[in-house]
Structure formats: C-alpha cells, structure tokens
C-alpha cells in the first residue's frame, strides 16, 4: 500500500518537473513538509547532507509560534498540496494542521510519526508531548528513515546511517537522564501545564501539573489549593513552568510553599533567539536535565 503511494508520488513529481517553470539541475528535489520543530529536527537529522541537495524541508509552524493551536495559512495549504511527503504527529496534537493534512490529495505521502510510539494511557486531557522521551524521538527517527528511503531508494543507506547516528545520540541522552535523575531528594515533578508526562514516565518521576494541557488552561481555585497541598506534602522545592509561557501560575504555587520556579523547555518550537544560538532538541534537553537535577535536588 505504502510503496504504491510512493510510486504514485514519484510519478507525480516527475510529471510536475515537466510543467514546472524552474526545474533544478539534477531533476526535482523531494518536497518534504513537516508540522513543527521536533519533527523537523528528526527529519533533518535523518536526511543529513542530502537535505540540501535532494530534499527540501519546510516547517509549517513558524519560529516562536504556539504549536498546538497553529492554523496553517492559505498559502501554506497550497504548498502542502504540492508536497511529496508530509510528516506530522496525529492524535489531535495539532487539530488544525491535521485537518489540513487530512484534506490533501491522495498523491501526498502522509506519515504520522506517532506510528510505533507507545502512548501513555493518560485519560481525557492526554499529554501529547511524546518527544520529551528521547527514546520516542528514536522511534520517530526510524519511521522517518523508512519513509524517506521509500521515497528515494537510492539514498536508503544514507538515511539508515544518519538515523543510526542520531539514535545513538538520543540513547546517550536517555542514559544521562536515567542516571542523572536516579537519586533525587524530590521525586515529584510539578509543572504549570501538563506537558511533561512522557518525560516523567521515562525516568520514573511522579508527575503533577497545576493546569491542563493547553497553555490557556486555568485551574479552578479548589484544584489549585489541592496542588499546593500536594506540593507541600511532597516537599517540592522547585515548581517548573514552560519556557516561553507565563510563569504566574508556577509562581503562585511556589509562593505558597516557599519554593522557587524554574523553566523547562517543551521543545515544541524554537524562538528566533534560540535559532540564532543554534539550539537543537539535544541542547534543549541537556538544559532540561540540568534544571531538573537542580530543581529535584539530584546527586
């Protein structure tokens, strides 16, 4: 089924090159669209140097924009229709983008990178930040390598190598987290919004969030009071808030129990400054680890 689609795609891209006004020298580059930052990171690492020569990657969510509620512009949807492959995360993580992708013509290969990722059973308001577990990133890298190899079989070896390298780096990161968070005075991770369930699950931390998953969520007064009590009982000394989001809620709880606040990156988008500083998923996660080790008093 999948290879059939790919053949159709390649055929379309060949036909496309005949009618296109400005074909590139060595024929058409593979047009790959990705939904947002972690996916872009995976695809870029897997395609490696081929990215510039053979593959053209565009990211839907612009730098610094909020990823969940992002609504693709009319121009972006037109570009999406011209794409060969689209990588995204399903499961209602980005409803507007998923809607746009669902309406694309059958010629576009759609790859939901949640495939093969083990989802947490997290109730109604489920956390979707699967990429905060590095091993999920590894799974996504494997899937991406497969899809890209199907699209450009000639580069299958390169993609496999690139993926293997990236997965090794991710495994090292995973090891650092596992060791770094194994002996901590506090085992309760408390954050503003419910975005770190996968991270907490991977490293056996208890997890609680002040508000729901959406950045606009507000807790009810009673549940805020309950959170304060939970934090006090667990001797929480640091309340974490999401980098780039307001810290008031975290500050309110921290204030009650005499704790401090500290930022954690959700790594769902980079702002302009972070891009200029050359930040990557790995660098963000290394900083997250430091913040966690200090906030949870780990040895």
């Amino acid at each position: 089924m999948k290879s059939g689609l790919v053949i159709a795609t390649v055929a379309v891209s060949v036909i496309g090159s005949c009618s296109d006004a400005a074909p590139t020298t060595a024929g058409e580059r593979l047009r790959v669209a990705v939904s947002f930052f972690p996916i872009a990171e995976v695809v870029r690492r897997v395609s490696g140097d081929a990215a510039s020569d053979e593959i053209e990657i565009t990211t839907l969510v612009p730098p610094g924009e909020e990823a969940h509620e992002y609504d693709p512009t009319a121009r972006q949807i037109t570009h999406l229709e011209d794409a060969d492959v689209v990588f995204f995360l399903g499961n209602d993580f980005q409803p507007n983008i998923e809607k746009a992708i669902a309406s694309l013509p059958g010629t576009v290969v759609r790859s939901d990178l949640l495939e093969n990722v083990e989802m947490l059973d997290d109730g109604d308001d489920a956390d979707t930040h699967v990429w905060l577990d590095p091993m999920n990133m590894a799974t996504m890298a494997r899937t991406a390598a497969q899809v890209l190899s199907d699209a450009i079989p000639a580069l299958a070896g390169t993609f496999a190598n690139n993926a293997a390298t990236y997965i090794r780096e991710l495994a090292e990161l995973d090891e650092l987290f596992a060791v770094g968070l194994s002996e901590c005075d506090s085992t309760l991770l408390l954050t503003t919004h419910r975005a770190f369930a996968y991270l907490a699950d991977a490293y056996r931390l208890q997890y609680s969030a002040i508000a729901g998953t959406s950045p606009g969520d507000e807790p009810a007064a009673k549940s805020l009071a309950a959170t304060v009590e939970l934090a006090a009982q667990n001797g929480v000394t640091t309340v974490f808030f999401e980098e780039n989001l307001p810290s008031e809620l975290a500050a309110t709880v921290a204030d009650e129990i005499g704790a401090r606040i500290s930022a954690l990156a959700t790594a769902e988008s980079l702002n302009g400054d972070q891009i200029a500083a050359g930040e990557t998923y790995l660098s963000l996660m290394h900083r997250n680890l430091e913040a966690l080790r200090s906030g949870l008093s780990c040895r």
Partner: peptide, 16 residues
C-alpha cells in the same frame, strides 16, 4: 509568541 491567551485578559486570572 509568549503563549499569552486572550482569555487571560477577557476573564482575568484572579488566582495568580
């Protein structure tokens, strides 16, 4: 790009 929601100002955030 600060993730500030419109609803924060329309309905306030008395708890914070």
């Amino acid at each position: 790009d600060t993730g500030v929601a419109l609803t924060h100002f329309l309905f306030g955030r008395v708890l914070t």
